[in-house]
Amino acid sequence: MKAVTSLQSSQRRNVAKMLLVAGIASIGCMFSANAADVYPSKPITLVVPYPAGGANDMLGRLIGQKMSEGLKQQIIIDNRPGAGTLIGATVVAKAPADGYTLLVGGFASNSVSPLLFKAEYDPIKDFEPIGMFGTAPTVLITYPNSPYKTIKDVVDAAKKKPGEVMYGSSGNGSPLHMSGEMFTSQAGVNMTHVPYKGGSAHILDLIGGRLDVIFDTSTNSTPLIKGGKVRPIAVSGPSRLPDFPNVPTFAESGYPNFAVNGWYALYAPAKTPKDITNRLSAELQKVLKMPDVIEKLRGVGVTPGTGEAPELAKYAPSELEKYRKLIKDANIKAD
């Protein structure tokens, strides 16, 4: 019964906490000026620009939970979904630069979405990098009994019947879509892009054989590959994935310049004091060395990052430029 009562009380505490947060989240920001002394002296809000559930949310929660143990301060996950991450990222870009509002940023919020839609923030200048905590390579997958065994098979088919090989994506501007655009332009072939509205319908259509391939992020496809529901053809990145040593890389298959991957990073608003971002970055680096964190990240197909701020400061602008060029060349536009 002891376990039971402790659960109850911890839940009660949690519910009370949440009510408090829901009720006075906005007031909380006003008091930030008073919270001087040692950082962090009050709970930190970690904004996840996606709805609860899904890879970003899960990674944010995992990292947030572990960092809060080290910082000895509560980290509260605040899901602010909408507008292809623009809503959540805007919240952080405009938050006080005191280290109490952080962003789980990455591929969408800091490179592709601001290129496709009108953003109220600058994806680089309005944020202070803390560190990258993971990358998710692209895995080209197909249905189990499909005729495509290698990248060459896919390219040959696309050359023979232009536009008839179909690849699905979770939406316009998703990593899956960008991968498709980059691949077709590098291979000089014409494939049809079939966008879906997030969710998992594209995976069902692939398994059902209605789509030919998907350039999926490894976070989604790793469990499906392990369960034998889809078959991997190639992976992006400099080397093969430890989970799938038999699957060649795009580079090995003749496409050395193919590089699209999801990435996940921690950001603070611009002008956040250096000692605060350094403290956070140090904590992130510690978390990323924990064996159970590494195992969990790898389990969902994420390659753990280093958590170092200078690396992120270099990486993000290069991503932004890469997709600016790709989007311009492929003539993808929103408005």
């Binding site: 709805p51 609860a52 899960m58 069902l204 469990p223 499906l224 392990k226 969990k296 389990g299």
Partner: peptide, 23 residues
């Protein structure tokens, strides 16, 4: 494969608890 937001959350929870979701 999650068919609703609730299930996506449950899959996320499984992952954090160290169970690899999937077939």
């Amino acid at each position: 494969i999650p068919t609703s937001a609730v299930m996506a959350l449950m899959i996320g929870a499984m992952t954090i608890m160290g169970i690899q979701p999937g077939p």
